[in-house]
């Protein structure tokens, strides 16, 4: 702050006073939200880290400091590698496929097509259903022999398949439900972005002799890039978060074939009461999410002109 001449001091004091009052009010307004955020986000993050460093206490052996032993246990556990690779496959398939579906849906929902609003609603409806309900709806498709899928394949003479009960297809069945659930949600963001693109661009491209595919690839996709990044980050977070349907469809089975990380954390903590290992696993998830967060903040900073 620039130094003010001596005779201006009273006013200067007034300004400091007002600044102090602003700060005080600011903190007071923030206090309730801050208290809850600390209690349910910041403190538990630290607490999770601490419990991940201690061994599991029993009545005979109280919990002792174990360093990174819990992490070592996880790495030595084949289940960890199965679950981690399942989640990688889950993310690796649901993210791109949902994005592609979302883009196609948005292009169609934005085109001049009869009953466009019905089509848009049909794409969007799964978004507002609970994951548990979505899983129940899909049971009807996956039930071996009697389910819709087996009816259809059976019509062509295929053997009935236990889609949810065999390791080869369980994860795929879970992935399909996730894509069905989230594609319509992502469509909305593309739809919003598409509507900001002036139609003259398309006309211009046509005059230049660019076909539809060229227009999509060279004009539309680059313009939609910021939306794609946003949707990508959301899909990435969803690939950690969306696990509710496992409770209905597979319970992570058979033989861990469809088990995902968050479900495993739940299982360790609340079915086997093994909090330290659950905490260690949670820490690793937080680490990955933190890296994603920082990467996104960096990206957003670079693109501030776009906001």
């Amino acid at each position: 702050m620039t130094r003010l001449p001596e005779n201006n001091r009273p006013q200067n004091n007034l300004i400091t006073l007002q600044k102090r009052r602003q700060a005080l009010y600011g903190w007071m307004l923030m206090a309730p939200a801050l208290a809850l955020l600390s209690l349910f986000a910041f403190y538990p993050t630290i607490a999770t880290f601490f419990s991940s460093l201690f061994s599991r206490g029993t009545t005979r052996h109280p919990s002792v400091f174990a360093g990174f032993e819990n992490y070592g246990d996880l790495f030595a556990d084949p289940t960890f590698w199965t679950v981690a690779s399942n989640n990688l496959i889950y993310a690796g398939v649901t993210i791109p496929v949902s994005i592609i579906f979302a883009l196609i849906m948005a292009l169609w929902a934005n085109a001049h097509i009869p009953a466009r609003s019905f089509i848009r609603s049909a794409y969007f409806t799964p978004t507002i259903l609970p994951m548990i309900a979505a899983a129940n709806l899909w049971l009807f498709f996956y039930t071996p022999d009697l389910g819709i899928i087996d009816r259809i394949t059976g019509f062509f003479g295929a053997e009935p398949t236990n889609w949810l009960g065999q390791p080869e297809t369980a994860l795929a069945a879970v992935i399909i439900v996730t894509i069905w659930k989230e594609a319509g949600f992502f469509m909305i963001f593309y739809l919003a972005a598409l509507q900001t693109i002036p139609p003259d661009l398309r006309e211009a491209a046509r005059i230049e002799g660019a076909g539809r595919w060229t227009y999509t690839r060279r004009v539309l996709l680059p313009l939609l890039m910021p939306t794609t990044i946003f949707v990508f980050v959301n899909a990435l977070i969803n690939s950690v978060k969306l696990i509710d349907h496992l409770f209905i469809l597979t319970k992570g089975g058979p033989n861990n074939a469809s088990k995902l990380i968050l479900y495993w954390i739940w299982e360790m903590a609340f079915a086997y009461f093994d909090r330290p290992h659950a905490a260690a696993m949670t820490m690793m998830v937080l680490l990955v999410l933190g890296i994603v967060a920082i990467a996104q903040f960096r990206l957003v900073e670079k693109r501030t002109h776009y906001r």
Binding site: A41, T48, S51, K241, L262, A269, F270, A279, G290, A293
Partner: peptide, 20 residues
């Protein structure tokens, strides 16, 4: 810090939040 909470999902912190 608040923005960071967009990524630290309450779903992930179930173990400690349950204790709290």
């Amino acid at each position: 810090l608040v923005l960071l909470q967009l990524f630290i999902l309450p779903e992930v912190l179930i173990v400690e939040n349950y204790a709290i």
